[in-house]
Design a protein around this nucleic acid. Sequence first.
DNA 1: GACACCTGAGCAACCGTTTGCATTAATTGG
DNA 2: CCAATTAATGCAAACGGTTGCTCAGGTGTC
Lengths: 387, 387
Amino acid sequence: MPATIRDVARASGVHISTVSRTFSAPHLVNPETRNRVLACAEHLGYRPNRAARALITGRTHNIGLIIADIANPFFPPLIKAAESQARQRDYHIFIADTNEDPAAEEDLVHALAKQVDGVLLCSPRMSNSLIEQLSREVPLVVINRQVTGLPAVVMDVGQGARLAVEHLTGLGHRELALLGGPRGSWTNREIRRAATAAARAADASLTVLGPNPPTEGGGIAMAEQVRRTGATAVLAYNDLMAIGLMEGLDSLGLRVPQDISVVGIDDIALSRLTRPKLTTVATPTAAAGRTAVDMLLQHDGSSSARAGRGGGRTSTADDRRTTAQVSLQTELVIRDSTGVGPAASADRPGTAATADRPGAASPARPGPHGHPAPGGATAATPESVAS
Amino acid sequence: MPATIRDVARASGVHISTVSRTFSAPHLVNPETRNRVLACAEHLGYRPNRAARALITGRTHNIGLIIADIANPFFPPLIKAAESQARQRDYHIFIADTNEDPAAEEDLVHALAKQVDGVLLCSPRMSNSLIEQLSREVPLVVINRQVTGLPAVVMDVGQGARLAVEHLTGLGHRELALLGGPRGSWTNREIRRAATAAARAADASLTVLGPNPPTEGGGIAMAEQVRRTGATAVLAYNDLMAIGLMEGLDSLGLRVPQDISVVGIDDIALSRLTRPKLTTVATPTAAAGRTAVDMLLQHDGSSSARAGRGGGRTSTADDRRTTAQVSLQTELVIRDSTGVGPAASADRPGTAATADRPGAASPARPGPHGHPAPGGATAATPESVAS
DNA sequence: GACACCTGAGCAACCGTTTGCATTAATTGG
DNA sequence: CCAATTAATGCAAACGGTTGCTCAGGTGTC
């Protein structure tokens, strides 16, 4: 039903190759003919079939983006940034959601494989070896994962987790809990490793809970278990879980931060809207999206491997340059969900007096009900210590 | 680099058509040969090129889903439902985000056109005529929009808005405000129409504000203006704006619901986590996603228009059956952001006494801190009146 | 033993483009 | 006025598959 290049050729009385050139190399065709062709095309409502074109050029100008769960507000900023970066280079992004299911991930890579020029694998849950294998089918850039030989961009949550633990121990907490995330998550492992080390260094105990689904529900459901650990401060795998946890603790009659402190990771927009506002580790999601697109496009900018008609196996020298692995810094954003621990509050007579948070090392923090305008209010991390 | 069907044919000593059939019609090939072919394919890491296959079969087994803004939590449930419905029928969904930009919408339809079997246009911002035109390029199903001649699934927000206004006027509010959404939104027009009518019917005044960006930021920014209208109750275009508005009102020192009542629309998960919990109009987003996929797949289940080799213009009788337009019911979910208005509170001595919400017609509402487990807590709308 | 029938595989056209090369006509230089 | 360029277009082979036919050989039936 839709017009093809042949219809246009017939209508304008030229060969299909002329029509083709009218669109992909206009300077090669006589302005007069060009206009006639254009007019016919317009009239017939012709649009080049990008799939057919891709078949021969080897370039689709599309990028696939595979996401563990679009319902998680953590991803949209990354997606938006990737999209805008891609658009600038005349690429489109197709997103696919896996529902945290490793099998769906593999399936989607196959589905996308030949319809895109490369795939951004964001917070994958499948095994490294599988990823490696899939990378032979389509160029891959992984985000929040390190797999040898593949370009990757990771957010240094380990550093963030350490800052968070130091913040908590600095407030006097000695019994900590870590609310773990999903199985298969590299981020989860990093957090665990760093938090454990930081707790040990500060001579505090840390109970690890999990794996858990990385959602509000996952946080709510674990409130009871968290209480049972006896911890006075909790670091959650992400903000969503932290928020759910606060909700759950609230149901249990525990008050945040008076009875228990909670720290999230990600700094999603929502974390500024909860009561209390969430202390969290800000991850540079937008930068990650941009960087990943850049890495992908740089990497396959020259490939295309178009073997000329008679051309034999002109094995183009494998110029696969250094497969970079970028690591992005994170920072701690101190808000209202963390307060002094039992050790410190012992020498303060009042009970609920910690509400104004005297000990927090956050001089730049806006007063309660200060303008929570988007983008603002990101108190800088105490300083240095970043490795 | 990746193996093609020809490589497999060569390796297994058969013709390419046999390899092809091994994958797309296994019963036509001798088990012995089949195994040999399969082994070779496996060994070479061969995967059929779906784009090439689509070129001739006319079916990609992909569906495009164009979304105004994935950062809006309203969409994920719709997306998830569409995905699961699609997966059941062996289809994949490619999502694209337009950033509320009509131009990006058009662009993306073109980009997706030949890579998918149809596109779900969700809450489009472009004009009806443009949509109609695009629908000649690729099968379209519109969501939250009615365009003549195209299959559509809409959520009856008009009804929801009416229920909301009736709820508010029932509580004694006489000065209402409507916090409008984005330009070009069908939903926005519907809400406005219904809310205006309902307000008039209840003899209350309604000030319409907008258009505004349908985000938290949009809500926050309008708090001051809302106050200036003197309204004691506000209906917002969506939950995100309602939540932003509550935040903004809070900064202004206005208390919800004591000083001003707020109602949202959508019933996103988040609306159950704010303080106060948001009264809102629940929209059946998941059902919409499922339905839209069904309509699309049913519609093009038989087309495929594969013209046999010598076959002339066998104009397949245009069996385009009734292009259905499904409308899904909405319902009001009463929570804690709405309270009695000035008229009613006049005969109540206490000031902040409305906190326990005596007048609300929501018998099924869970007590404060009842289990806010996902899926539960959806108090039924007062009853009937649904048109 | 002749015939119809079925199975399994090959042949080649086709999907809608792109692109290296050949062809033609118009232009330029000497 | 002729040879050599140059500009514009046509030709046909790809790209990686699918599929209607044809064909060879084996089996069953009378």
